[in-house]
Amino acid sequence: MSKNIVEIQNVGMKYQSINGEINAIENISFSVEKGSFVSIVGPSGCGKSTLLSIISGLLKPSSGKVFIDGEEVTKTSDKVGYMLQKDYLFDWRTIYQNVILGLEIRKNLNPENKDYALNLLKTYGLYDFKDKYPSQLSGGMRQRAALIRTLAVKPEILLLDEAFSALDSQTRLAVTEDIYSIIKNENKTAIMVTHDISESISMSDRVVVLSKRPAVIKNIHQIVFDCPNRTPLKCREHPSFREYFNLIWKELDVHV
């Protein structure tokens, strides 16, 4: 048995429509170790969300295969939790009702899982807000509630699609710190898509750099900081942070 919890093998995606064919991604292969944090960076519109949707089983690739724990992905898996760009908490549900949405849909709403959800709310400081509506919470708290909603179904792998991009830059740093510590605390494997190079370096063990569309892998960087108990903020202040940044920046070849 390998330590790789996710294997992506030669995955390609062509979108078909009346107006033509869009070749979004091409021949993508990489693997993700259990418990690690992997980021995928690339120019916007290159196919990052597409790749994440394929890993989650929401989208069927035109070619190639994805394996989770050695099993081929054909539909959405209970092992995967997804975090989208915005929190998408439902206005008409309380925080608690939002948090148990996934359990409800998977018909797993038993007392044990309810307790687990309530405990997550307690651990991460939202218990007192469980009967409040989303509009009564701050942006950072909402994002945390969204993460708890994902964690409540006990996924092994978290997929984050630009999960912080709807926040303003200050909140974003704080929320990144917050979410990162929760993910590490819960021992989850994470695959995060972002177009923010700093964010990817500060959180990840590996950064996968994609080219512009059709996206192919340009490079995969191993990110190592000799810093105990790393957190995104500590990494940002580390001397080698700049080096990684410049390396990836050049590779992304950003034009204005």
Binding site: T76, D78, L84, Y88, F90, I105
Partner: peptide, 25 residues
């Protein structure tokens, strides 16, 4: 569409998409 995507990530079928998102929203 993203609200629909959200419930689909939990494996919601068409009926659940309707009952949990489309109708209440």
């Amino acid at each position: 569409q993203d609200k629909i995507k959200l419930v689909e990530t939990f494996g919601a079928n068409r009926l659940q998409v309707f009952l949990k998102v489309v109708f209440p929203s």
